[in-house]
Design a binder for these strands. Structure first.
Length: 810
DNA sequence: GATTATCGGGG
DNA sequence: GTGTACGATAATC
């Protein structure tokens, strides 16, 4: 019994490689295929024959021309001989043409006779597809070969595999040997693999913590090698003994960089299970670094998908998950530290690898569950958006139902979809200000429930097989009563599976059985929840095969109507609804109905939930989400709350932009903390006034005034004057190199010229413009909060102290 | 207020 | 690789 960890098409061996934990199985019998909307085999064959004859004829002509040109070019440049185009011989590529009866999605689920065209090799699909495009409509012609294999054979990756009975056994997460990997580079500016060397590599696994360096440091985990080439060889050696490799942004940085460096030494990155080379595909911004037979897990895309934080640097993710602040050195200091043999650099490099592994261990079980539920490989799942996962789930279900799936949109259609918009969820304008004793309630999976209970799906919308009364229409649309659509059907399967798992979990919890199986099932139900909640978004996803703007629009329309009716009921019951967004709301007890204790409030909430849930249709449920000690509501999507345990939740108010000065960020944080923790508006006001005073007195740290802005284009390309551009010009004038992408840090100094002219580097700043910092850095972030509490801007500025010019003492 | 441009992660 | 190609936020009209 073994589990399938990876699958790849080997283009040298011309077959699929199934990478099990301890063996690679070659699959030679599976052939690529697609469908053609025609059941006339003779006609298809004749069409191909005609094409081939035509092609041969054209090629003779072209070759004559090409040869002439080539000869000319060759005599001129003496360049390599250009190969002439081979004529396309489609008939040789075809394995078979079979007439099959299929249900066709695009034709309202009609049963139809189609041709299943099987070709010899995956690359043939593109050739034949392009020829037959002019003949009739094609289906399922762009499903990657290995993905197709997994769908058709119902092989569930990462489950144990019973070779005797040829079936997968869904149980424990396989015992994969995992290591994390991270490199450090010596560079002053943007790293370039053409010149900047790799100086260190770190690894962390359950029984190995290692830093390899090309220089000696005083550190216990360090191994020293003589040069960079040896380092690269050692990296290959270490990585080659593991099944799973964790990185943080390794897709875009570590592996492409390593490959670039290896090339300068004439080395190949033969990292695959059987010595296959790493495959790095560059798709514009996002690369993928694939190692055949091993699973490269990049934690960065996972963190983006599963966490909701302001920034996704490794240090932010570490802090979010473990509450630990890891050592950070700042990349610009690496060369200095390397030159001065500062061992903090080794510790930093090691911690990067260590926490990358910790994050990997945290997320791997969930990824494994996604892989099993969606039925695609761990590597691919790692890099899929939730909409793509839904698509593969639908493709799998569609195949099981004998349905030919719809195609991806054409370029034009895609553009049209991107441009179209529709009304989203209901967002209530908040009752601005500070509120206490807040209860939040929300709908458990509002959109999935709506899609299921109304049978919303691209093929059930406006069907022609049912009769509807006018009153049954939603936004003028109707949904079939006879047949369950593929989207609600897929959702129901997921929800039912989750319900069953939840029941088992409940039983196990009662028996106190929090064992391995409990954990696995818990991960499974979590992955299913994410997938279920992604179905609505999928309907509006422009690249989706089962896209339907009408379906998405009906879903949000019904959602708005449910939440609005619920708010009305809550108000009638005695609540005062402060704010609402899409599927939930924040409320307090209306003082008109008397002042009640927290215990009584929770009781009332329970009572209300019972009455409302009795009225709601079966699938839908309003839930108690939380009780908050205090909350500040500023505008739509901008609010902050604090709960019983002093845990602060901030939505839309955080200053996350790196270009704001420290003093600005600090002030905003302190003001919010004060308001949430003590509810004291006056002391919040004091904080702001005190900061302004300190600024006027000149008691601020120079560093706290730095504003950071990135240079996004070349200096000469800027049409407008901006502070950071002016500073960049000064740096350039002083003879230093300035590159696109550099972050310029500056202080606005005092004077009479324009702001841009007064921007200076920290070492050149002799003063600062008090007024600028008050008006542009301190006030803007706090003003909207304070205005929601009826405090005016003038009131904040009015500290009745004289403004004096302040100079930095040095 | 709607539409268009820019980053993001890594060193 | 049977190609791709996201999504949130800031800037700008």
């Amino acid at each position: 019994m073994e589990s399938l960890v990876d699958i790849d098409y080997n283009s040298d061996d011309l077959c699929i490689y199934l990478y099990f934990l301890n063996q690679t199985v070659k699959e030679k019998n599976f052939k690529p295929y697609f469908y053609l909307n025609s059941s006339d085999k003779e006609k298809i064959l004749n069409y191909l024959k005609d094409f081939e004859a035509n092609e041969l004829e054209n090629n003779k002509e072209n070759n004559k021309e090409n040869n002439k040109e080539n000869n000319k070019e060759n005599s001129k440049k003496n360049s390599n001989f250009k190969t002439v185009n081979e004529p396309k011989e489609p008939l040789k590529m075809i394995e078979s043409i079979d007439i099959v009866e299929k249900i066709v999605f695009d034709e309202k689920y009609k049963k139809k006779k189609l041709s299943k065209i099987t070709v010899k090799y995956p690359t043939n699909v593109k050739t034949i597809r392009e020829i037959l495009m002019g003949f009739e409509k094609l289906y399922e012609y762009d499903i990657p070969f290995t993905k197709r294999y997994l769908i058709d054979n119902e092989i569930i990756p990462t489950t144990n595999w019973d070779f005797k009975n040829n079936l997968s056994i869904n149980n424990k997460i396989p015992n994969l040997k995992a290591v994390s990997f991270d490199i450090e580079v010596y560079c002053e500016k943007e790293p370039s693999s053409k010149k900047d060397p790799i100086i260190m590599a770190s690894f962390s696994s359950k029984d190995e913590n290692l830093v390899i360096s090309t220089k000696k440091f005083n550190h216990d985990k360090l191994e020293v090698v003589k040069d960079e080439k040896e380092l690269i060889k050692r990296i290959i050696e270490v990585l080659s003994s593991y099944d799973v490799i964790y990185t943080y942004n390794g897709d875009n940085f570590d592996f492409p960089y390593l490959k670039g460096r290896a090339e300068t030494f004439g080395l190949d990155l033969k990292l695959g299970k059987n010595g296959e080379k790493i495959k790095i595909t560059k798709g514009g911004i996002n690369s993928k670094s694939y190692i055949p037979g091993r699973v490269h897990i990049d934690l960065y895309p996972i963190a983006r998908r599963l966490l909701s934080i302001a920034r996704y640097r490794l240090e932010n993710v570490t802090e979010e998950l473990f509450g630990i602040k890891k050592v950070d050195v700042g990349h610009e200091n690496i060369p200095k530290m390397w030159d001065s043999c500062d061992e903090t650099l080794v510790e930093y490099s090691f911690q990067d690898a260590y926490y990358t592994r910790k994050i990997g261990e945290q997320f791997l079980p969930l990824e494994v569950m996604f892989s099993r539920v969606v039925n695609q490989s761990l590597f691919d799942i790692n890099r899929m958006s939730s909409s793509q996962m839904v698509e593969y789930l639908l493709l799998k279900n569609s195949y099981k139902l004998g349905v030919v799936s719809p195609n991806k949109p054409s370029g034009n259609e895609y553009q049209k979809r991107i441009r179209s918009s529709y009304e989203g969820g209901y967002v209530k304008e908040p009752l601005k200000g500070i509120h206490e004793d807040i209860i939040s309630m929300d709908f458990l999976s509002l959109y999935p429930s709506i899609i299921m209970s109304h049978n919303i799906s691209p093929e059930t919308i406006n069907c022609d097989c049912c009769n509807f009364k006018e009153a049954e229409k939603v936004l003028g649309h109707t949904f079939c009563k006879k047949q369950t659509g593929i989207v609600p059907k897929t959702l129901m399967d997921l929800i039912n599976r989750r319900k069953k798992i939840k029941e088992i979990l409940k039983e196990k919890a009662l028996k106190n059985e929090f064992d391995e199986e409990y954990k696995i099932l818990d991960y499974e139900q979590k992955s299913i929840k994410v997938l279920a909640n992604s179905h609505y978004g999928y309907l509006a996803f422009p690249m989706a095969r089962w896209y339907s703007k009408d379906c998405a629009e009906v879903t949000t329309h019904l959602g708005r109507s449910y939440i609005q009716k619920t708010i009305e009921e809550a108000e009638n019951f005695g609540f005062n609804v402060i704010y609402a967004d899409t599927d939930g709301f924040y409320s307090k007890w209306n003082s008109k109905n008397g002042i009640i204790s927290k215990e009584k409030l929770l009781e009332k909430t329970k009572e209300f939930l019972k009455t409302i849930n009795d009225k709601l249709p079966g699938e839908m449920e309003l839930e108690f989400e939380g009780h908050f000690k205090r909350g500040i509501f500023v505008t739509k999507k901008k609010y902050a709350l604090i709960d019983e345990n002093e845990k602060v939740t901030i939505k839309g108010l955080e200053v996350v932009r790196r270009d704001w000065s420290n003093i600005s960020k600090k002030t905003q944080k302190n003001v919010l903390d004060e308001l949430l923790k003590h509810g004291n508006i006056d002391s919040a006001k004091n904080i702001i006034q005190k900061t302004i005073d300190e600024l006027k007195k000149g008691n601020v740290d120079k560093e706290d005034l730095l504003i950071h802005t990135q240079l996004t284009k070349r200096i000469e390309d800027y049409k407008t004057t901006a502070p950071h551009v002016e500073v960049a010009k000064k740096i350039a004038k002083a003879g230093n190199r300035i590159n696109v992408g550099d972050v310029i840090s500056y202080i606005i100094t005092d004077g009479k010229n324009s702001i841009s002219e007064r921007a200076e580097l920290i070492e050149n700043a002799k003063s600062y413009d008090t007024n600028y910092y008050i008006e542009n850095q301190i006030l803007p972030p706090v003003i909207r909060i304070m205005e929601a509490l009826s405090i005016s801007k003038d009131e904040l500025k009015n500290s009745k102290k004289q403004t004096t010019l302040h100079l930095f003492m040095k």
